[in-house]
Design a protein around this nucleic acid. Structure first.
Lengths: 233, 233
DNA sequence: ATTCCTTGACTGTTATCACATATCAGGCCT
DNA sequence: AGGCCTGATATGTGATAACAGTCAAGGAAT
């Protein structure tokens, strides 16, 4: 039940012991990173060959990812990466902006000062070098989750993880061209640190509004980058 | 995209062609109906024997149901039916009362009169004889979904289905003792018909409030039946 | 009598294999 | 020449079998 600051542990426990989970994580990572583009056909045997496993774990992985909404798995036909849809993107963000501010409202009285300090420092390291893009987004997801975790039930956490992953695909593709810009990293770091600062005021309404604006801002940015041809720079 | 009133079709398409889906539906039905009680250990081979299939489809089914939150599937150990938790129950209902009234607000202008008439008639048949308890709850879920479908994206529908299934388990167990009472069927029918009447007023706020109260009422009823020893009757 | 270890059965996991079905290319008929 | 049928190829699906880990019971030592 504790949020367990993973960075404080020197040795991390084995994250996934079954091959099936490893395959699931690897395919999910590839989809979120965009190396498996939307619509890409996912052949069981080819994937199994590339990953050097049998196709049984691949089959399991595709079924799990289907439940997460990242792949479509029509019976009898080949699975494929779920297509991108701008309407869907906004629908998920509307959903997040409904859920997360409400959780923030109830989470803010329960967050300890120590936890807020930790999150402030974590936000500072977001753009830290020697971390891969995958790690950065992992940190980003953990950051948002930790902000709401005190008020979140197991079911809330499941939903939050699902929705954050669902939007991450759009955001990463949209921000793809912005990421090389170092100023973008600064901007994101400042945005998250100021978000923690708003939570420090210990006012539920202020925190909820800050999180909503944070989400709305990211939604606009990703939207411009995705639809607009002129948007970036 | 159309809601496609299934009752109007004389021949219904094959609902599930793969064995895996059939097994998934059967196990899900058993869990929701309570014949597989919370905590029940789910052995692959025993389940496979009972269903007269190999354990490959059973394995797939358990993985899908794990994603839905109905079973816990720790790697290396036997799966089991997810335990019941009253806090979790209220957490899911809080979630639904946040999501569904918002969808109702946007759905009410898009619902056609014909669709509302159809839903009103469907509500009248809820307690209809010769329909099994499983069918009744299937209808109930379809009813609530149809009420919100015009404003719901694919992702919303996925979330709605998940959350309705998650609460259905609690509700069915809680209402278990009430179901034999015929007055309970009348009460439920009237509740759903009056819900449609509220939607007919075409006022988003009224519809949202009506749906919220409907959910709150059901939440209270199930809560009393679950926790209270004196509650029912 | 209690505790620890060993052994056995059980269960999930993965690989290999056989089958039904979908996809697509080429050829035939119109 | 274009559409339709038919063949082969490929792909998902399900079954069987071998492997590895877990859990519990029973026996031996303290």
């Amino acid at each position: 039940m504790t949020v367990s600051p993973a960075s404080s542990r020197l040795v991390r426990p084995i994250e996934s012991r079954s091959v099936s989970e490893q395959v699931t994580n690897e395919i999910r990572r590839s989809i979120l990173a965009g190396s498996l583009p939307p619509g890409q056909s996912l052949s069981l045997r080819k994937l199994a060959e590339q990953l050097d496993v049998s196709f049984i774990p691949v089959r399991d992985a595709l079924r799990v990812l289907e439940a997460e909404g990242l792949v479509v798995n029509p019976p009898g036909r080949s699975a494929s990466v779920a297509p991108l849809d701008l309407d869907e993107f906004h629908a998920i963000y509307r959903f997040r902006r409904l859920i997360e501010p409400d959780l923030a409202r109830r989470s803010v009285p329960q967050l300890t000062d120590a936890e807020l300090d930790r999150l402030y420092r974590a936000a500072a390291e977001f753009g830290g070098a020697e971390r891969s893009m995958d790690d950065i987004y992992d940190d980003h997801r953990a950051f948002h989750l930790a902000l709401l975790a005190p008020a979140a039930s197991a079911w809330d956490i499941r939903i939050l993880t699902m929705s954050e992953r669902a939007t991450e695909r759009y955001v990463r593709i949209g921000f793809g061209r912005l990421d090389p810009d170092p100023r973008e990293h600064d901007r994101r770091r400042e945005a998250h640190q100021s978000l923690v600062d708003e939570f420090r005021k210990r006012d539920p309404e202020i925190a909820a509004r800050a999180l909503d604006e944070h989400l709305a801002h990211n939604e606009d940015l990703a939207h411009d980058a995705l639809s607009g041809t002129t948007g970036a720079e």
